[in-house]
Amino acid sequence: MWNSLQLYAHYFKIQFHSAMEYKTSFILTCIGQFLVSFNVFLGVFFMFKRFHNVSGYTYSEVMLCFGITLMEFSIAESVARGFDTFPSMIANGVFDHIMVRPRNEILQVLGQKIEFTRIGRILQAVVMFSYGIMKSGVQWSLAKVGTVLFMLLGGAALFCGIFLIYAAICFFTLEGLEIMNILTDGAREYGKYPVNIYGKKVLFICTFFVPYALIQYYPLLYLLDKGAWWYTLLPAGGFLFLLPCYGLWRLGLSHYKSVGS
């Protein structure tokens, strides 16, 4: 385990040096990343100029929700970006290089691409999150701070799991499937509002199938004093979600080994 962390740190270093080779491009991409999610923010902002509340949530409450979801996603995206570029890794033979090395494949895939430019998005998440904290009138306690941290971790795990599914499917299709955008970009886009505003059916799906609600809606209710205390434990679902994702990856890998590229 320690050894693996060390190796990941080494990848991290190389990636950072590589990114710094193109400083202008790096900065511009950061700004680009910021702008992309800034658009989403502007959308929310102007909707609230007109409507003032939605399903009982105020603007600052939505900001808190959006900030947390965006941060969960951005952390996962920085770490697990390797899965996102996985189709090209298969196509250009990088994955074959990975296979002839005596280390865990997932670790190597992750190390292959660490996306520092997502700092632009994380920064924005922090801003919205802070605004939400200041204005939402949440009475902060140790338990609530812990809940937020747990949400961030569980959420990052959940999104990593979804990226892992995306990569695992590439073993079968050899190309990225646009449909997975629903679960990644879609979740980021629509996760700006607490999932219950989309209606009961969506909430049901997001509770029992792809458990977004466990890392967003339920613990948020606890933060806003609208939900039970045990809602704060639900982000654990994000970690459990990793298990089936890993299973799918194993299945994909053995398929790849029997078919090749």
């Binding site: 193109y22 991409t29 680009g32 102007f46």
Partner: peptide, 22 residues
């Protein structure tokens, strides 16, 4: 030198101002 940066900025501006977000 960096087409990617220009591209992302352009894409964001277009999306927002053409009524793609709302």
């Amino acid at each position: 030198v960096s087409s990617l940066g220009v591209r992302m900025v352009a894409v964001s501006v277009v999306e927002f101002f053409q009524g793609g977000v709302i």
